[in-house]
Design a protein around this nucleic acid. Structure first.
Lengths: 231, 231
DNA sequence: TAGATTGTTAATCGATTAACAATC
DNA sequence: TAGATTGTTAATCGATTAACAATC
């Protein structure tokens, strides 16, 4: 039963699928009809075997000697991710990041549609951001029930994260895309997907620091570094 | 030499460090002086051994029976990530996401300071967003050189990504935090850190889809799904 | 001392990479 | 057919988890 809509795919594979999708859409726009795993691997700096394995987990099969049909691949990936039919979501916390995500065109291309936003600040209620209405928190439960919303994008300040999540759970939300740095407490069966910008920044910072240790910056800049980093 | 500022740490470990940091800062704010790996593991839903291994890669040592000093841990993690002295960066592409990141307070807490933004749209030049000046692309090379900037946050449309990266490379940028879905082409030695929102959304989408397959939604909503997902 | 906690070494698990058979 | 490409099975690599010794 769990295989009826595609094989089981590993998390790293799923993360790579949107990258394939982006490349394939470009090819499709340019009129290309078939593509080989070798070509995809070159373009994305991946291993060709990995590409084939990733693609095969969506259920698609290629033709030896020929490659894959671009359109078929796009359909397979979209279908595998559930991106072929629109899912509605709400967003909570209309600060900098929340406002940006409201206007982020990428979501619609991925068929996630944010239908409403909420904020604890009563000043924000009644306004619109990127064409999306902002409501006070009191309206949350009612709207979620009425529209059968299951997904919430969480962009509130860290201190309020768990409190808001409790409201979401009470309202019937079953999946949370969590942009806060908080480990949310939810009952079994509720999906929490942590989107950790700080984690990415940490990796970047460390790589920059490693590179500087290997090749120290020019002497005319020495005032900036080299002070207390040694423990 | 490569060990002088901490042991080598795996990428997953580095990604987790900011999560520890957030918890520890909360503890510090509450006046807690010491903490055990067991407690941290409970709070963050991690394995205690993993917590100890992660922490030990920053160079810190705990005391058996006692635990770790909160302040010492914070210092060790910040120092390990290079977050104890401010690094200056620029941002290119002041759209929705770019604007949000300009105002994203999280960066300052992590000691990355965005000093200027750039945009190809001449209408945006001369304005300020979140207190940060927006310049036309022509000023890029000059400012990067003058301020010895090495890090760039890239939030331009996908089509323009590689072209802008070429400008960045010419200007002397050596590290790019890439928010576009494009596999950037850079020479060896230049750091590219891909921050892939679509990847996170893909994982969320797939998990939601899996959950729905296991426990289908109520019958009164059947119009929404179950159409063409079967291959 | 006894007991709790750290830190390390070994075992397991999962993902990537390599080798190769299948096929158009 | 010959050759290129797919897809799978085995081997390697890396990260997590488990077992246990060290220590305050």
């Amino acid at each position: 039963m769990s295989d009826s809509l595609g094989k089981v795919a590993k998390l790293p594979t799923i993360r790579r699928l949107p990258v394939y999708l982006h490349l394939l859409r470009g090819l499709q726009g340019g009129g290309t009809e078939r593509v080989s795993s070798t070509y995809i691997a070159e373009q994305l700096k991946l291993d060709a075997v990995q590409v084939r394995k990733d693609l095969s987990s969506t259920g698609i099969v290629g033709k030896p000697r020929v490659g894959f049909e671009v359109t078929g691949l796009i359909d397979a990936i979209e279908s595998f991710l559930g991106w072929n039919n629109t899912t509605e979501a709400i967003l909570i916390g209309v600060g900098n990041l929340g406002s940006a995500l409201l206007g982020y065109a990428g979501f619609m291309r991925h068929n996630l549609s944010v239908v409403a936003a909420f904020d604890a600040d009563p000043q924000k209620a009644g306004t619109e951001i990127a064409g999306k209405p902002v409501f006070p928190m009191e309206k949350l439960a009612n709207l979620v029930h009425r529209l059968h919303i299951r997904i919430c994008i969480l962009t509130v300040p860290a201190q309020q994260a768990q409190g808001v999540v409790n409201l979401l759970l009470a309202a019937g939300i079953t999946a949370i895309w969590n942009f806060t740095p908080v480990a949310l407490h939810v009952p079994a069966g509720v999906i929490v997907q942590n989107e950790d910008l700080a984690g990415g920044l940490a990796v970047l910072s460390r790589r920059v620091r490693d590179a500087e240790t290997a090749h120290p910056p020019r002497a005319d800049e020495s005032a900036e570094g080299g002070d207390d980093a040694h423990h």
